[in-house]
Design a protein around this nucleic acid. Structure first.
Length: 245
DNA sequence: GCAAAGATTTGCT
DNA sequence: GCAAATCTTTGCC
């Protein structure tokens, strides 16, 4: 029973201060609806203990502020346009599963599988607003930049300062900041015991204002797929992908 | 078996 | 504004 002043949360509500897993049924529905549900959700990577390789990394948490929908085999921008393959098979599986692929031979991209099993669809996580574990995100990002500079053999170039809000402001940067690789494909992001997972926004946080627009980087597709407004962003977030003015 | 292109990011011009 | 870096996946011969 709920009475005014009762410190206990109402039934089903997130426990204050305790994370609540992201409900799978929010993803097991039309992807364009799931996109709005996923905005504001938390992406969490558990702490990585220190090994011989190097010192550990703290727990990382960020708020999802940009996603893109890829829906069905008809969508000529989707990896599912080829039908089921070794790479995209997980898109045909249960909602809440992670689908991670490599683009341009160097960047990983994290997708959240949506819709009931058998229907290939997913949401590409394009940008995350860092909340916690900024040091770990920065460490992974700088390791990436250092490797790039080595490859380019540009000894004179020094790393440019990156504001916290820009650490995961792009799909490849989200994966880098959270240490996500193809080995994470198949992880159940709705399972609270997964080392990489989704959590619901804290109770009381208002749902974000959402802006939609066409998807990015899919010029290879045909109309109407290049123009449909299947990109969803949180209005006013400083962490949206793309270059700053 | 080989060639082409890619759900990106960065740094230089 | 443009091109490079880099390698997997897919299509075609």
């Amino acid at each position: 029973m709920i009475v005014p002043g009762d410190p206990r949360p109402p039934p089903g509500a997130p426990h204050p201060g305790r994370p609540s897993p992201f409900p799978r049924d929010r993803l097991e529905r039309p992807t364009l609806e799931a996109a709005r549900a996923l905005l504001g959700a938390r992406l969490v990577r558990d702490a990585v203990p220190a090994t011989d390789e190097g010192s550990g990394l703290g727990r990382r948490v960020g708020r999802i502020v940009e996603v893109e929908a890829y829906i069905g085999e008809d969508d000529l921008a989707s990896h599912a346009r080829f039908g089921p393959t070794d790479r995209n098979r997980v898109m045909y599986g249960p909602p809440g599963t992670a689908y991670v692929y490599l683009v341009y031979g160097m960047h990983h991209c994290l997708n959240v599988v949506t819709e009931p099993t058998g229907r290939p669809a997913a949401l590409l996580v394009r940008a995350v607003e860092p909340i916690d574990g900024v040091d770990a995100m920065r460490a992974e990002r700088e390791a990436l930049s250092a490797g790039r500079r080595r490859a380019r053999a540009s000894t004179d170039a020094r790393p440019r300062h990156i504001p916290d809000a820009r650490l995961a402001a792009g799909p490849g940067l989200v994966a880098a900041a959270f240490g996500i690789t193809r080995r994470d494909t198949g992880i159940d992001l709705c399972d609270p015991s997964s080392p990489l997972r989704l959590e619901s926004p804290p109770g009381g946080e208002p749902p974000p204002d959402v802006v939609t627009g066409p998807r990015i980087g899919i010029a290879y597709a045909a109309e109407p797929w290049t123009s449909v407004a299947w990109r969803f962003t949180v209005a006013g977030s400083p962490s949206i992908s793309g270059r700053r003015r």
